[in-house]
């Protein structure tokens, strides 16, 4: 397995306040990673360290084998980046900023640019300051893909886009990046977008990485089990590994499971019960549970 992105112990604080703490994370080449966290969880800080805009206090990492702290230029040549609010030179026209950016890259896909300028109906002679927020985001995506990057880093890319445009945006990323075998690092609190496309999901809260798992694994094993026993089970049942929370209402138990679903079910079934339901959890429910759980600790 080849890693497109390897982050190792990234740590960064601002004026004594920890923004990212000992964050280690690997992203497989050709995959889409959803980087999930609330606002202020440390997503943007992590991305800025990846791109050399911020220097980590400690730790480091590699993107496509190049050090993010020592070889920023080589990293930037192979990475496309869409920032949350990308301020570009407002006095430049769409064409002018494309021509400006072009001077810094050896690869440049003019056909791709033309395809998506037409697709988005972006007026190429219009000044950037006159574009709507959505149009600026679309232009930022074109700018990020123009040099055919191996890795696309997106920081809350769909803010400012309506649902239809958001779907289109995702589809373009799938078509131009994922289907070309390239890697996507998608930071977002738009769980719906991540849920559609991510291979893996990384949860970050208060600067710390809570969990990294494949979406399929999450949805297969993170469940709630509602069981009504015929008689009280032994308390050892609830100390099974993988159980994160147990709440009780009369003889009914609600058991939150994060791992080891099969094993836990097998244990539960050793006790006679009236009903047993396995409740699926979607990404939003999983996310909320994780952040809530982290606060309690």
């Amino acid at each position: 397995m080849t890693w497109a992105i390897e982050l190792d112990g990234l740590t960064k604080s601002f004026r004594g306040k920890m923004a990212v703490e000992n964050l280690s994370l690997n992203v497989e080449a050709g995959s889409i990673l959803g980087f999930l966290g609330q606002n202020g969880a440390g997503k943007t800080t992590t991305i800025k360290m990846m791109l050399g805009l911020l220097r980590p206090d400690s730790g480091g990492g590699r993107i496509l084998g190049k050090s993010i702290t020592g070889e920023s230029l080589q990293v930037l040549r192979k990475v496309g980046y869409v920032a949350e609010v990308q301020q570009m030179y407002g006095y430049m026209s769409v064409n002018e900023i494309l021509n400006f950016s072009r001077q810094f890259y050896s690869r440049w896909n003019s056909a791709l640019i033309k395809r998506y300028l037409d697709f988005f109906s972006l007026p190429s002679k219009e000044k950037i300051k006159n574009l709507s927020k959505g149009m600026k985001t679309q232009l930022a995506l074109i700018l990020a893909m123009a040099h055919e990057p191996e890795v696309l880093v997106l920081d809350e890319p769909s803010s400012g886009l309506d649902p239809i445009n958001r779907q289109e945006f995702l589809r373009i990323i799938l078509d131009e990046i994922s289907l070309q075998g390239k890697t996507v690092f998608l930071s977002s609190h738009q769980l719906h977008d991540v849920e559609r496309v991510a291979d893996k999901v990384a949860f970050i809260n208060q600067g710390r990485l809570l969990d990294v798992r494949s979406m399929d694994n999450l949805k297969t094993t993170v469940k709630k089990i509602r069981v009504v026993f015929q008689r009280e089970p032994g308390s050892s049942l609830f100390s099974q590994p993988g159980i994160t929370e147990v709440s009780r209402e009369g003889s009914a138990y609600l058991i939150a499971v994060e791992e080891n679903l099969e094993g836990i079910l097998a244990e539960i079934k050793k006790y006679p019960y009236f009903t047993l339901d396995i409740i699926d959890q979607n990404l939003e429910e999983i996310f909320i549970e994780k952040v809530r759980g982290d606060r309690h600790e």
Partner: peptide
Amino acid sequence: HGQTAGFLLTRPVS
């Protein structure tokens, strides 16, 4: 001040 530094400094130029 114009917040264009992020754009400029993510071009591959030293």
